[in-house]
């Protein structure tokens, strides 16, 4: 069927020999993109590692202000969303449209939950003057915690790293929600099947990477 123009599947573009080659090319492109994403985040992990090795006691003290319950909850939410995305691909491969759509919607809802929890975390910090950069000015008392106690040299750097890393990660979650909206609409229209589900596969790969970044951010920022 490789050279036939009349009876090739609708999704197969002319410059590919087969659906299989098209799928492999798209997926390899996605992995290359994921490596650039890993390198983007690794720059921030380097900043974390350098400041942490220089001022370990400041990082230990400052991380007390982050809420490990909220961070742990968000870890479970993202793991669940990775699970639903993997299930979605399983159903796409089995031509189960209903299973695919349900799992894509669940993934979207988990992503939304993650950002809502993050919103409450950020506002709780902002209320006490914990901002990234020059605006850093911890003050006030809540739940027996005197925030002014945490205004030590280099605490500002810890929270700048926290806000930049979780902020850029959060932006990726937002992008993921946009992608899953797009994929869900296409799935409802019945555009995917076991013959063609490349966009579902690649959005899934992207989403798993967002999950992996958080898997490292959670213990490093909240628990250590």
């Amino acid at each position: 069927m490789a050279n036939s123009h009349s009876n090739h599947p609708a999704h197969l573009q002319h410059h590919f020999v087969s659906s299989e080659q098209q799928f492999d090319a798209a997926k390899m492109g996605m992995w290359l993109f994921l490596v650039t994403e890993i390198l983007l985040f690794s720059g921030m992990f380097v900043a974390y590692v350098v400041y942490r090795t220089w001022h370990p006691e400041v990082f230990l003290l400052s991380s007390e202000l982050l809420n490990p319950f909220m961070g742990g909850l968000n870890t479970l939410v993202l793991l669940a969303s990775s699970f639903t995305v993997a299930l979605g691909i399983h159903y796409a491969q089995k031509d189960n449209k209903k299973g695919l759509v349900i799992n894509l919607v669940l993934t979207f809802l988990f992503a939304l939950t993650f950002l809502v929890v993050k919103y409450f975390e950020y506002t709780a910090k902002f209320e006490h003057g914990i901002f990234p950069g020059a605006a850093f000015d911890p003050h006030g008392v809540s739940h027996g915690v005197d925030y002014a106690m945490y205004n030590v040299p280099y605490a500002k750097q810890f929270f700048s790293i926290y806000f930049v890393m979780t902020g850029i990660h959060g932006f990726h979650v937002l992008v993921g929600m946009g992608l899953f909206t797009w994929i869900t609409i296409r799935a409802v229209k019945g555009e995917f099947s076991s013959e063609y589900y490349t966009p579902v596969e690649n959005c899934g790969l992207y989403w798993h990477l967002v999950d992996i970044i958080w898997i490292f951010l959670f213990p490093l920022l909240y628990l250590m």
């Binding site: 990775s82 999950d211 959670f218 213990p219 628990l223």
Partner: peptide, 18 residues
Amino acid sequence: LALAIATTKAALVVVIFM
């Protein structure tokens, strides 16, 4: 220890989920 656990989790996601 925390990094070892996180790396194990990441490996599970990469090898099986991805």
